[in-house]
Nucleic acid binder design. Structure first.
Lengths: 138, 138
DNA sequence: CATAAAACCTATAAAAAAGATAGACTGTTT
DNA sequence: AAACAGTCTATCTTTTTTATAGGTTTTATG
């Protein structure tokens, strides 16, 4: 299950994408629109900014905005940034790999094999689907 | 990411399947073999028993054993039992559905749509692959 | 230039979940 | 009767998640 943090990030990004024509958007506007605690959202947007996904402007008329078109922002990137690994086991994670503690030999562990397939199936979607694909359908 | 509980359960089930010919297996044997805290493992095996996956026998010569052949125990069942939802969002979970708090209308939410596809892709594997498929490869 | 607006930053707190342990109880075998 | 091994319930510790607080910096504008 994705954390609230990641879920909020998606909703915030959706709002930013759908209002990209209006210039920088206030944190407070997003918070209200999506029912998210404003202070919590602040941290999330900051992380997205530090990761190069969002830009911001301070002072009056300021706010946050997307640095790239929605179709260039893969969902996997957001999940990894805020939640970490997408794989179900550390020993099959591409980006957050950790050795398995409970099996003697990964090369021969059947769990490793199946969970790798699950990871691939999920990534096939999460790395090709982008912010553009999760915008509100008409 | 799967919890330790679920990971331990898989390793315990693997051990039980691979030693099914030896009659009931002691908790302590599994714990030692797989480097799992014995008391923690105790709780896990009990849950598996209460779910009808394992049988047990008390007293001397007792222990745990599989109630069904490994190929009839789907991985999804174990995950759901110990970890809950397999889906990435509550609003696309088949077994643990909860309404989405942050979107106005699920029918129109694009996130819902994509995460449903991820769920389907994962389930396609996790509901067809069984304990038999994760046994140690030769 | 003063003021207000709005993001930035760091720290902390509260709540929930995960992971682990303790000890007495029940049923079985010999 | 004694030893064995699972059963049950409760609690505890640690970690992670979620959320809040409050001061700092930057920018626009009158």
């Amino acid at each position: 299950m994705l954390s609230k943090k990641t879920q909020y990030a998606f909703h915030a990004l959706i709002h930013l994408a759908e209002n990209a024509d209006k210039g920088p958007i206030l944190i407070s506007e997003i918070a209200q629109e999506k029912s998210i605690s404003i202070k919590f959202l602040e941290n999330i947007l900051l992380e997205l900014k530090n990761a190069g996904i969002l830009g911001s402007k301070k002072g009056k008329g300021g706010g946050y905005y997307l640095l790239k078109p929605p179709k260039e922002i893969a969902l996997a990137k957001i999940i990894r940034l805020l939640d970490g690994a997408i794989a179900l086991l550390p020993c099959v994670s591409l980006n957050y790999y950790e050795r398995c503690e409970n099996c003697r030999d990964e090369a021969v562990c059947g769990l490793n094999d199946v969970m790798g397939k699950v990871r691939d199936a999920s990534l096939k979607i999460l790395e090709t689907k982008t912010l553009k694909d999760i915008l509100t359908r008409d």
